[in-house]
Design a protein around this nucleic acid. Structure first.
Lengths: 351, 351
DNA sequence: CGTTTTAGTTCTACGATACTT
DNA sequence: CAAGTATCGTAGAACTAAAAC
């Protein structure tokens, strides 16, 4: 090699955006007065470097503004250190917090996340193919919930937020059943019997929550009161659903919504029909997203922990890639009911 | 080289997810009976290959399920072919469609997008540092709108959706001024005078739209009727803003909202106050997102073209990276008013 | 016949990891 | 620990061989 020459070229062609660009391990090694290999060891936090040299290397790296080249790392290592992330249109505050958790965890494990969005014009297959260019060694799917992910069994794969029945798919999710049960229990304890549910449509998650609602009602012997109205993911769906509830001859005294967006929209519709919340009707949301706290009537809701979900998903995948044992394929986080102002005792007695 | 050995190792360690994994240029070259370099030439669509060999190479590539390794491409090339994308919490249907456009364009230009989200715990600096590992050669920022992007002038940079006053920042945006003017003009033409605006808060985009609203009102000699209510990005902000409007002694007959989310939320609030749309009040949204068409009252709104915005942003950056000339630093797409059912002639005469 | 064009190959560089000595 | 070297999978420059004019 001719380091001198390579330096020259770099200086001439690079515009750079730190102090200098194109700082390589060589530069750091030379500056710290050690070998390249030792720099590698230090940067990877691998064992085999004395405290003093470690310090000197890190110092040199900082001074030069050195950041390891992830492309080279990825190419040279046995693992690519790349985790693909597919995520779809179901974008809300909740999914965004999930992304945040994923990135934080990935970075702390020295892995890189490559996002591959799923849109109308970009299906699972296209998204997978594009990720393949990075030779990713694991995949995390956020949405939309599919019961049979395309790459299931072909590569370490984790889905976040719903249940998948595949022996080689890892699952990290919130206990939606307990979450919905807690919501129903809360309303029943307050004295409600006529409790309706605006669902989330036909997705796997929506189905799970709907089933949980029906089961909870049955457990309380309220099957005859159970009522499901078709909703969806977003506020507009909530508007439609709530409107249908208002039009019914029997108006419920309690509502469990698929998510916070639906709940907030429903509150608006109720108000427009002269029904106050929680006096006229109690409403429970789901997710404890930013929506819940910003809602005009602070929302009683079921909290998920997006940061935890993200962290666990990444850690699972890292574990899989490193071929270490995983005890349980499915991690289920508990859901926690957060009681705020949108629920109260019923004032009317249902017919 | 010992290709035989390298094959063996690959077969043993790879789980693979197509038919085979770890297919390299070597494999394709061997199969097509040509040199590796020729495969490179064909894959890059570079000149210097006969039609026949080109066909044979592509055939071999298809049969083997070969995809070039973007890490190696990135590392070996003079350019990294990586474009960083920062995007923040302002996530709505609109921004998602933007992402779609960006990916489509990037892929068709043989570039790779690396997403670096901006969240509470992840600022511009952190996001930039993480991208730096990829040696990205251009950056596209979607949000949140900043007037002084951190990396301005240090690397080819494009912002999408708002104006930035920096000689080395490319801008691709919709003509918000004309868009808002069209909205106001539309209402004025219908006979409205008392037209209010629920704004988007303090972001650069929100300020631009607010100013445009005020200017439009002035142009029609309606300055005394102008009224701005503080809103924000999401539906909850719309709820608050609309409520404030209803509480005012003088109720407007027309409303121009910062975006579709605000508009839809406002319609809900109006209904709850017994005000029908468009009979009691006309409402215009912004973005023509999926929200606009799903709204219970189909929304009159100003359409942006997210796919175009995305495509142009990518193409600018590719052009910059290739050091080719760019004529105008700022591209402004026209905004188009889509008239639907949420606007009509005023039925009341304002006091 | 000499010179450019086109097609194809050979070889090194890219920036790290990982192994050997 | 240090030093050296092979390797990862590609780009791309330098080079060769043959055809084209």
């Amino acid at each position: 090699m001719q380091p001198g020459k390579s330096r020259e070229v770099a200086v001439l062609t690079e515009e750079s955006f730190g102090s200098r660009q194109r700082v390589t391990m060589d530069d750091v090694a030379r500056r710290a007065g050690v070998s390249r290999a030792l720099v590698s060891i230090v940067m990877r936090e691998a064992p085999g470097a004395s405290e003093e040299k470690r310090r000197r290397v890190l110092e040199a790296a900082t001074e030069l503004g050195y950041r390891p080249d992830v492309r080279a790392q990825s190419l040279a290592g046995q693992r690519s250190r790349v985790i693909g992330v597919m995520f779809g249109v179901t974008v809300g505050a909740f999914h965004f917090e999930l992304l945040d958790g994923l990135f934080a965890a990935a970075e702390s494990h020295g892995h890189n996340l490559i996002i591959s969005p799923l849109t109308k014009s970009r299906d699972e297959d296209t998204a997978a193919r594009s990720l393949q260019g990075f030779r990713f060694d694991a995949l995390i799917m956020l949405s939309p919930p599919t019961s049979h992910p395309l790459l299931a069994g072909r590569i370490p794969l984790a889905v976040v937020g719903w249940h998948v029945d595949h022996p080689r798919v890892d699952v990290v999710r919130t206990d939606d059943e307990k979450g919905i049960h807690a919501a129903v229990d809360h309303l029943v304890t307050l004295g409600h019997r006529d409790i309706a549910h605006i669902d989330g449509g036909d997705t796997v998650i929506a189905t799970a929550r709907r089933d949980a609602y029906l089961a909870a009602m049955e457990r309380h012997g309220l099957t005859s009161w159970a009522r499901v109205v078709t909703g969806g993911q977003s506020q507009v769906d909530g508007l439609v659903g709530a409107r249908r509830l208002c039009a019914a001859d029997r108006r419920p005294t309690g509502l469990v919504a698929y998510n916070d967006d639906i709940a907030v929209a429903a509150i608006g519709v109720f108000a427009q029909h002269g029904i106050a919340v929680p006096e006229g009707i109690s409403v429970v949301g789901y997710d404890d997203s930013s929506m819940a706290q910003l809602s005009p009537v602070p929302l009683t809701t079921v909290a998920q922990r997006p940061d935890e979900l993200g962290r666990l998903a990444v850690e699972r995948m890292v574990t899989r890639v490193e071929q270490r044992r995983i005890v349980d394929r499915e991690i289920v986080l508990s859901a926690e009911l957060r009681v705020r102002a949108s629920t109260a005792q019923p004032t009317r007695t249902p017919a």
